[in-house]
């Protein structure tokens, strides 16, 4: 056994490449098989023709990608923009944008206060944002459904019983519900990078701005925000990317009216049994996310250059 061990070690010592290979083989195996291969199959299916009863015909085609954007007018047969899907794309982008904006508007001021005035309990204050990560995503969404339902939800009951309103408000199963759910779920994603950036902020720069007569708002807009651009950018990406592909929140809190890209994809696969078209939409969503990340990496690299020079 021990001579075997010595021989194995000796071999690995003489061949550093083999050492790397042995160490990385499990992860390469796992990711190639259970991340990359499924993606490639979806990519392959997106070029196939959809047959009757959910069958896939091996005729290569670009129709699926064309169908995302273009449809034919039912009466004239003329091609026209496919607003049904374009609207869903637009709605996903808009909802993700609103979620990101709200997360920044809520997250920035409070992390600013924690980073600058949090004192010795800073970590506790930030920890309170991260703690819900351990709780169930579904339970958190359900807790909001319980609050927002009408007429028996908590908020409606509170307002009705105290006589502030007489008709229950429609808060759930619409866009409001989806945005509340997404801001609630993704706020910690914004808080962590914002805190990291604000924590590193050099306070003497803020003092200098004050000494030079900057008003609080001027100091915020012209000193604090520009110096924490990197954190704002990271926070935006971390919120926007999962929001734009969100599935569960619009599924549970959106009702039938608020469909997002994730729901459209699931519908195409399972309700319409159109795997080819669902695959094309999936590839579209992946490309959208990749494009966002590419822009992010480009911008954040130039940010780093900027930070080093200052």
């Amino acid at each position: 056994m021990s001579s075997f061990r010595r021989r194995v070690l000796g071999f690995l010592w003489r061949h550093p490449g083999a050492k790397t290979g042995v160490t990385l083989s499990p992860v390469v195996f796992w990711l190639a098989l259970f991340v990359l291969a499924p993606m490639l199959i979806v990519l392959y299916y997106s070029f196939l023709t959809n047959g009757p009863h959910g069958a896939l015909l091996p005729t290569p085609t670009l129709e699926n990608y064309k169908d995302v954007f273009i449809t034919e007018d039912l009466r004239t047969g003329q091609p026209e923009a496919n607003w049904l899907y374009l609207n869903i794309f637009g709605r996903s982008l808009l909802l993700a944008f609103l979620t990101t904006l709200l997360c920044l508007l809520l997250g920035y001021p409070v992390t600013y206060w924690i980073a600058l005035y949090g004192g010795r309990y800073k970590n506790l204050w930030i920890g309170l944002f991260i703690l819900p990560f351990w709780t169930s995503y579904l339970v958190r969404i359900f807790a909001w459904m319980f609050l927002l339902r009408d007429p028996s939800g908590f908020i409606n009951q509170l307002l009705l019983q105290t006589g502030l309103i007489h008709e229950p408000l429609q808060l759930l199963f619409n866009t409001t519900g989806v945005i509340i759910g997404m801001v609630y779920t993704y706020l910690p994603f914004a808080v962590i990078p914002l805190y990291a950036a604000l924590e590193r902020l050099d306070r003497s720069v803020l003092e200098a701005a004050f000494d030079l007569g900057a008003r609080p708002w001027q100091r915020l807009w012209r000193v604090t925000v520009p110096l924490t651009r990197g954190g704002i950018l990271s926070a935006s990406v971390l919120v926007f990317v999962p929001s734009v592909g969100e599935y569960l929140i619009p599924d549970l809190m959106g009702g039938a009216k608020v469909n997002m890209l994730g729901n459209l994809i699931a519908d195409k696969f399972f309700r319409d049994q159109n795997w080819a078209f669902g695959s094309a939409l999936s590839i579209g969503l992946i490309l959208l996310v990749m494009a966002l990340l590419l822009v992010y990496f480009k911008v954040s690299r130039s940010e780093q250059v900027f930070e080093r020079r200052v």
Partner: peptide, 20 residues
Amino acid sequence: MLYLPMYIPEVVLGISLLVF
């Protein structure tokens, strides 16, 4: 490649695994 699963939308990863 390694961080890919963190960025791919969950619904896409789930469905492609099912398809696989």
